[in-house]
Design a protein around this nucleic acid. Structure first.
Length: 491
RNA sequence: GGCGCAUUCGUCUAGCGGCCUAGGACGCGUCCCUCUCAAGGACGAGAUCACGGGUUCGAAUCCCGUAUGCGCUACCA
């Protein structure tokens, strides 16, 4: 390998970073990092009608969240800048002019209304739609007349009408196209902005991009790019097209499928480690069984050749499982820090802020293996924080128990627990287990009654651990309240 | 319509001519553990490898055709 490896992620700033784009960026990044190459961020803002304010910042925020750092880009510069295409207009203009002078391109004055009508007719006649090359051989006089009329032209490439164009794709292999199926495409728009075809060729060459990694949707455009490379006398890069991420209907993933924005996943409580691992594994695999991989392992083992060829559906259930795995692997301090913002947002307003991080840290071990997403944590730990429990007292009565038996269980438990000198797990266990027997109950029945009394929930972390974190006073108070509520309940 | 690409359990995938009566994971079911919920463990159901022809002693793996799906077919990327 003589040429240094340089790859680029080139999104257009149209609003948000979706997981499909992220996957492309990850393949770029992993490939660059694996080979000690350079990862470049380039903003393809050549469509002024689709530009969205703040989109670039949003994009960068998403990449940073995943840990995809770039070596050259709009915010940090580099030797091949600027990295906004809108700031490179002269380059495209010069290239277009040169191609026109060479006779490889020409100005086209056709009105878009005419082109639309033409296409409609072609489709109606079941002809392949494409530009009819009306302006390809305009005489000097005709051109002058159009210019005089003030028509702003576009520049079209003069595509050869016969022959074939082929290229080798690292993932898809050899692909061949008939030139006769390709029309004279627009390179430079009438507003002076380039189309993707021109801009990507000019920039990839100027930025010395070695491998173009992008979605399969671009395969059909490669011949156009090759024509430009050839006409300009440039060496084309290596092509790596990867299959698309698709929705449940198997169509290319897009906004209408919902839940496609990377940062939404962050807000829904997924960890960046999860997203990184999971997205890398859609369409790429190391072998027949490795699934859980750290960023380091991914970098070390990544190769373009192991990217598959078929579009993949984003499997939410598996994502949830994987996120659970990562949550469980977190150190308690780490989990605490990550959970805090979600608790702040998700706990009832009645809970005093700021939250006590020390206390949060005490409850985290109890729910760590029960949360699949950070957003689920507030609901899981709510009873540790609120003052007034609010539940249906009928829930206190455990399976195969009467109201009276429940009442008695609560009252006796309260008395005995009051006498406990040390309120720890062991003490509770040695008190409560024999007590169940004494009351003629199964341990599960007693625990179930107490669980509801103390938490207001029927599914919680282990009872004794929960009680310890809650503290003796609060437990006794809640049992007392439960007794009162149960008494009010008519049997 | 034209051109291009793809096609292995519901989903993500392994497989690059014999190791495949097709392996793993998620999800699902049963059981174990167990104070509930999880987590964990065990077991199981689930794919005639889209279909039809070849090639070969032998094909999920190679070739051809068909079907289906997706992509492109803009002065969008």
């Amino acid at each position: 390998m003589t040429e240094p490896i340089r790859v680029r992620f080139a999104p257009s700033p149209t609003g948000f970073l979706h997981v499909g784009g992220v996957r492309t960026a990850m393949f770029d990044w992993l490939f660059a990092r694996h080979n000690g190459g350079t990862f470049i961020l380039r903003i393809e803002d050549t469509d002024i009608t689709r530009k969205v304010e703040g989109a670039v910042e949003y994009l960068m925020e998403g990449l940073k969240w995943l840990g995809l750092d770039w070596d050259e880009g709009p915010d940090m510069g580099g030797d091949y800048g600027p990295y906004y295409q809108s700031q490179r207009l002269d380059l495209y203009k010069q290239a277009a002019e040169r191609l026109v002078e060479q006779g490889d391109a020409y100005c086209c004055y056709c009105a878009s209304e005419r082109l639309d009508a033409m296409r409609k007719e072609q489709v109606a006649r079941k002809q392949p739609p494409g530009y009819d090359r009306l302006c390809r051989n305009l005489s000097l006089q005709e051109r002058a007349a159009k210019e005089a009329a003030g028509i702003k032209p576009v520049v079209r490439f003069k595509v050869p009408t016969e022959g074939q164009t082929s290229f080798h794709d690292i993932i898809y292999g050899d692909v061949v196209f008939e030139n006769s199926n390709i029309d004279d495409f627009v390179m430079l728009k009438s507003d002076g902005y380039p189309t993707y075809h021109l801009a990507n060729v000019v920039d990839d060459h100027a930025m010395k991009i070695s491998h173009v990694i992008r979605g399969e949707e671009w395969i059909s455009s490669v011949p156009r790019h090759l024509f430009i490379y050839k006409a300009l006398g440039y060496q084309p890069p290596l092509y790596v097209h990867h299959p698309l991420l698709v929705g449940p209907d198997r169509a290319k993933l897009s906004k209408r499928h919902g839940d496609v924005s990377l940062l939404e996943y962050r807000d829904q409580g997924y960890l960046p480690e999860t997203m990184f691992n999971f997205i890398a594994l859609i369409g790429w695999s190391l072998d027949d069984k490795t699934e859980l991989m750290t960023r380091r392992q991914l970098i070390d083992t990544f190769s373009l050749e192991r990217i598959g060829k078929t579009g993949a559906i984003f499997n939410r259930e598996k994502l949830d499982w994987m996120n659970g795995v990562y949550i469980r692997s977190l150190a308690i301090d780490d989990l605490t820090q990550r959970a805090l913002p979600f608790l702040d947002k998700g706990l009832p307003e009645s809970v005093k802020r700021p939250l006590n991080a020390g206390y949060v840290k005490q409850v985290m071990p109890l729910i760590q293996e029960r949360a699949k997403k950070l957003t689920e944590i507030p609901e899981l730990v709510k009873f540790f924080f609120i003052e007034e429990l609010n539940y249906d007292p009928a829930l206190l009565i455990a399976k195969n128990m009467t109201r009276e038996a429940t009442l008695k269980a609560l009252e006796v438990s309260l008395q005995r627990m009051k006498q406990l000198s040390s309120f720890d797990e062991g003490a509770l266990e040695t008190l409560l287990r024999p007590l169940a027997e004494e009351l003629g109950l199964k341990a599960g029945q007693l625990f179930s009654v107490l669980r509801t009394a103390v938490t207001g929930e029927t599914a919680t972390p282990p009872l004794f651990q929960t009680m310890v974190v809650l503290g003796k006073d609060r437990c006794l108070k809640r049992i007392d309240e439960a007794i009162a509520e149960l008494k009010k309940l008519s049997s």
